[in-house]
Computed example of a mutant assay.
Amino acid sequence: MDRADIIDGYRRACMELDNLLAQAGDVELRSRSAGTRWTNEELLFHMVFGYMVVRRLLPLVKFFGHLPDPLNIAFARLLDAGIRPFDWVNYFGSRAAARVYNRHRMARKLRRLTTTLATSLEKESEDSLALRMVFPTRWDPFFTPVMTVADVYAYPTLHFDFHARQLSFPFDADG
């Protein structure tokens, strides 16, 4: 995936979130999502949260990209060992944060995040985009055993699209 594709994915996610929020009423947003324990509104926030995570992951991947593989592997194993606390924080954190970044604020947050990420991505050198880190694959289905900085930039849209299919209300992605 190249830079333009990643940035196009960011734009599409923003438009889809705008459309989802415009089409969903209180009943739909408070209803349980399909396949998660979150409500649709909490799940929508979690979809935005994927982009928030990337802003914090990028410096980490760049740092570990300069370290020897054994340190990368040990760190990933340590993170995988902490799957239970991660799952708890991921679930309850998204529930709590959805109260702050609710239906009235999450689209604006996503636009700011994707604008920042797109600007950052455009400034990255090819060498920087190629830096890689071993990832805790138990944490997320879109974490691969080794991810480059470019992979991390692409990750949140994969995460967004996956969770969009778990919303329990019908919507027209084109508005």
Results as ranks from 00 to 15, higher is better:
residue 140 D to E: 00
residue 163 H to S: 08
residue 53 V to W: 01
residue 73 I to V: 15
residue 52 M to K: 13
residue 148 T to L: 09
residue 121 L to G: 05
residue 36 T to D: 07
residue 58 L to T: 04
residue 16 E to A: 09
residue 124 E to V: 05
residue 156 P to H: 06
residue 102 N to E: 09
residue 20 L to P: 07
residue 103 R to S: 04
residue 1 M to R: 01
residue 10 Y to T: 05
residue 112 R to G: 15
residue 1 M to P: 01
residue 21 L to E: 06
residue 18 D to F: 02
residue 174 D to P: 11
residue 146 V to M: 06
residue 63 F to Y: 08
residue 27 V to I: 10
residue 159 H to F: 06
residue 16 E to H: 13
residue 119 T to H: 08
residue 66 H to A: 11
residue 119 T to D: 09
residue 68 P to L: 14
residue 53 V to L: 14
residue 69 D to R: 15
residue 45 F to M: 05
residue 97 A to F: 06
residue 140 D to I: 00
residue 78 L to I: 07
residue 163 H to I: 01
residue 116 T to Q: 13
residue 5 D to L: 10
residue 174 D to C: 09
residue 163 H to W: 02
residue 83 I to A: 04
residue 158 L to T: 07
residue 89 V to D: 08
residue 165 R to Q: 15
residue 156 P to V: 13
residue 10 Y to G: 04
residue 168 S to P: 05
residue 131 L to N: 04
residue 52 M to D: 13
residue 146 V to F: 06
residue 175 G to K: 02
residue 82 G to K: 14
residue 162 F to S: 00
residue 144 T to V: 01
residue 114 T to M: 06
residue 169 F to A: 13
residue 38 W to P: 00
residue 115 T to S: 12
residue 20 L to V: 07
residue 59 P to A: 04
residue 107 A to Q: 14
residue 66 H to E: 06
residue 61 V to C: 00
residue 152 V to R: 03
residue 38 W to E: 10
residue 48 V to L: 12
residue 34 A to P: 11
residue 135 F to M: 05
residue 82 G to L: 14
residue 139 W to F: 15
residue 108 R to N: 08
residue 64 F to C: 10
residue 77 R to H: 05
residue 19 N to D: 11
residue 48 V to P: 05
residue 175 G to P: 01
residue 99 R to F: 06
residue 76 A to H: 10
residue 30 R to T: 01
residue 33 S to Y: 02
residue 163 H to R: 04
residue 104 H to G: 03
residue 168 S to C: 14
residue 121 L to T: 01
residue 65 G to N: 10
residue 54 V to R: 09
residue 23 Q to A: 10
residue 65 G to I: 00
residue 4 A to C: 07
residue 95 R to S: 11
residue 166 Q to N: 13
residue 82 G to S: 13
residue 48 V to C: 10
residue 157 T to K: 01
residue 41 E to G: 08
residue 160 F to R: 07
residue 10 Y to I: 07
residue 121 L to Q: 08
residue 84 R to N: 10
residue 149 V to T: 10
residue 56 R to G: 08
residue 50 G to P: 00
residue 9 G to Y: 01
residue 171 F to Q: 05
residue 166 Q to L: 12
residue 159 H to Y: 12
residue 24 A to N: 09
residue 53 V to R: 03
residue 131 L to S: 08
residue 97 A to G: 07
residue 127 D to E: 02
residue 106 M to S: 08
residue 151 D to Y: 03
residue 161 D to T: 10
residue 173 A to T: 15
residue 117 L to A: 10
residue 159 H to S: 06
residue 23 Q to V: 13
residue 130 A to S: 09
residue 22 A to Y: 03
residue 83 I to D: 06
residue 25 G to T: 00
residue 23 Q to S: 07
residue 119 T to G: 00
residue 38 W to F: 10
residue 128 S to M: 05
residue 46 H to W: 10
residue 72 N to T: 00
residue 17 L to R: 02
residue 118 A to C: 13
residue 107 A to N: 15
residue 107 A to T: 08
residue 38 W to M: 07
residue 14 C to D: 03
residue 81 A to M: 15
residue 7 I to F: 02
residue 5 D to Q: 13
